[in-house]
């Protein structure tokens, strides 16, 4: 899970992610990034998230928590 923020930074085309920063503030936080994020979570973490579930997370940290919760549930 250590590479979650790295992967997210790559999708948002930024150098690094501030976990507490509001996701809406990233210039590239749009439907394309969200779809790419869904794919990344499906491929790398075997987690299925809807775009609504992702949009409900205000910050990268909240998103990370939501992913971890789903991960433990599938295990």
């Amino acid at each position: 899970m250590g590479n979650f923020y790295t992967e997210l930074a790559e999708l948002l085309e930024v150098d690094n992610i501030d976990p507490a920063c509001c996701l809406e503030e990233y210039e590239n936080w749009d439907s394309l990034t969200i779809l790419s994020l869904i794919v990344m979570l499906n491929t790398n973490f075997n987690v299925t998230m809807s775009s609504k579930e992702i949009r409900d997370c205000e910050t990268a940290e909240k998103l990370f928590e939501a992913v971890q919760q789903k991960e433990t549930r599938t295990k």
């Binding site: 749009d30 439907s31 869904i38 794919v39 499906n42 299925t48 809807s50 775009s51």
Partner: peptide, 25 residues
């Protein structure tokens, strides 16, 4: 309809990420 996309109710409406998850699963 958000994200700068414009469409009418007469138009095809696709929830792209839901379709992606459906296909993959």
């Amino acid at each position: 309809v958000g994200d700068g996309n414009l469409r009418a109710q007469d138009h095809l409406c696709m929830d792209g990420s839901a379709v992606f998850n459906f296909v993959q699963n």
